[in-house]
Design a protein around this nucleic acid. Structure first.
Lengths: 337, 337
DNA sequence: TTGAAAGCGCTACCAG
DNA sequence: CTGGTAGCGCTTTCAA
């Protein structure tokens, strides 16, 4: 009933009358072996059902065929991150690696670190102990969004969407629909990321350019309807005639609140800076940014793979996104690097 | 700029004047060491920035702190699987393991198998070469849905939702809304799973009980609108006065097609047996089954963890789900095992 | 083109 | 309670 004992390269070598070095080289096509020998070894390996022992390989060669993805706990439920993760898994597969979803907390990682050869950290919170741990480990990493720390060893790259440009397009669209006092509802310190910074700064700059007095507030990404409702009331009382929300899905949740407050949704523009596919991207009543999370995940892994083992200052890349209006006038995003 | 050389237990042992065995035992609390020694070793380890080498541990102890999740390529984009995966990652974390998303194809796995200690395979297609590979490897595994093969070594458990019961509730609901010729549109061979079997069988049985002539057809889970439209036309022409769809999201896609065919959606019940959160679960026009994918993922990992290393026939567990009507009369599902 | 030896860092096993 | 020895399966390095 149990594994009948797994076959090793030593077994293969004995069986073939070769040295285990030769077998090893033949199996991974290390060049020094005669083509016929390679064929012979491979055939026999298949016959005997040989499978490589990854642990042994890793131990000796200090390389693991896996890449890690760390998503901060607060936001793991957002569909943006799920789609991102699946895009990343796909890209990792193309690079011959598995993708490890790292969800354990810091303490557990000390006793049993993840066996990954490179790490993608997405929207990292300042001082997140898990990330500190990875840094201490000396793991090569690429961040999605800028890190709170100015400079970190082994931080090899940054990839981000053009949040300033995209949110600006949204503000313009809201303005074009007649809003003259658009309010901004961003995320608070429970989820601080460079994205949140960019978007808030972009709002202030846009207001300044249009001679509009900013009307901004923040909520927790974990806010319940009660909390959200309070914020919305305050903004409306202050004279908001449009609301642009930051965290994914919040615009859709604000919609009924606005209606309940007696506003006509048709005359009250609503926008989401991270469109939720389930509730926002297909809703004609909401202007939203589609960050193309799947492609984002793929591009991020590509950057990580490109930079693995490299040194020097972090490389910077930009990922595209697009603004989705109700009408047919979608604004294509700027992409590539 | 590079890692200043990672510290090992030998370094620690030398530093402390102890044997490396003692250090090893102390670090993992193997009981035989004096409490003070344990404290001493742990403190010093932290000071020196020691991190365990997972490869070495795995090699020696034949255990990896990671569990794998394999999702067939055809369906990876369905949000059901994404939510499932994140639930699984969370549960794995609680068990002290990482979750590896396995997306590589068979050929790549031979040269570089995934370093996992147990595997979750979900809705496996008959003859999927990747799964065959895992079986050959002798990896402990649990399947979500029954396997096409009758009996497989190391297949330690099966977990599934009560698809027959849930779909029956849906048929009843459709009937209650007045439909007398409800058609069923299931998935075809591009995605064969025990779920598809159960649901189709359940439909036929229900029809027989109600003296209704079955009206069923199948589509590819990858069907485009054109293909879907053709199927819908055929069903309507055959006299369908309601449509129940199998694959996630198909009911929402059928909705506009039905309207285009001149049917009044209000009088034409539409149902989804795997509700899509983005388009179906919140739509009052569609009756749908919420399989609670996140909790499903968690329960699946728990089963895997429970059964790791065990032997014998596969254990069977049931996961709950619920039917979501437009009204307030949701049917709670049966859960647990 | 091939082989032999050494050793990656850790844990299992058996002495003390 | 602690230490020594062996060895997991592989790749690296060097010699033939």
């Amino acid at each position: 009933m149990n594994s009948p004992k797994r076959i090793t390269i030593v077994d293969l070598a004995r069986d073939l009358g070769l040295a285990k070095t030769t077998v090893s080289d033949a199996l991974q096509g290390k060049g020094r072996v005669a083509p016929e020998t390679v064929a012979l070894v491979r055939t026999r390996a298949e016959e005997l059902g040989y499978v490589l022992n990854r642990a042994a390989r890793s131990l000796r060669s200090r390389s693991t065929g896996a890449l890690g993805l760390y998503i901060p706990p607060v936001v793991r439920n957002f569909s943006f991150y799920m789609e991102f993760a699946f895009g990343a898994a796909e890209a990792a597969a193309r690079a011959g690696a598995d993708l490890v979803l790292i969800a354990r907390d810091h303490s557990a990682m000390v006793e049993q670190p993840s066996a990954v050869g490179g790490l993608l950290v997405i929207d990292p919170l300042a001082g997140d102990p898990t990330i500190q741990h990875f840094v201490a480990t000396g793991l090569d990493m690429v961040s999605v969004g800028r890190l709170p720390e100015a400079s970190l060893p082994h931080h090899l790259g940054v990839i981000e969407a053009d949040h300033s440009g995209l949110s600006r397009s949204v503000f313009d669209a809201v303005f074009a629909r007649g809003a003259r006092r658009p309010a901004f509802l961003g995320s608070d310190g429970t989820f601080f990321s460079s994205w949140a910074e960019d978007v808030a700064a972009s709002y202030r700059a846009w207001c300044a350019e249009h001679g509009i007095e900013p009307l901004a507030d923040t909520v927790s990404v974990e806010a319940d309807t009660m909390a959200l409702s309070g914020k919305v009331s305050t903004l409306l009382a202050a004279g908001a005639d449009a609301i642009i929300t930051g965290p994914q899905g919040f615009a859709a949740r604000v919609l009924p609140l606005v209606r309940a407050a007696g506003k006509d949704p048709a005359a009250f523009p609503l926008a989401s800076l991270v469109g939720d596919p389930s509730t926002e991207l297909n809703d004609p009543r909401i202007i939203s940014v589609d960050l193309l999370p799947r492609a984002f995940g793929e591009a991020s892994i590509r950057l990580l793979v490109d930079r693995l083992g490299a040194t020097g200052r972090p490389v910077h890349r930009t990922h595209g996104g697009r603004v989705v209006h109700a009408g047919p006038s979608d604004t294509p995003g700027r992409g590539g690097d």
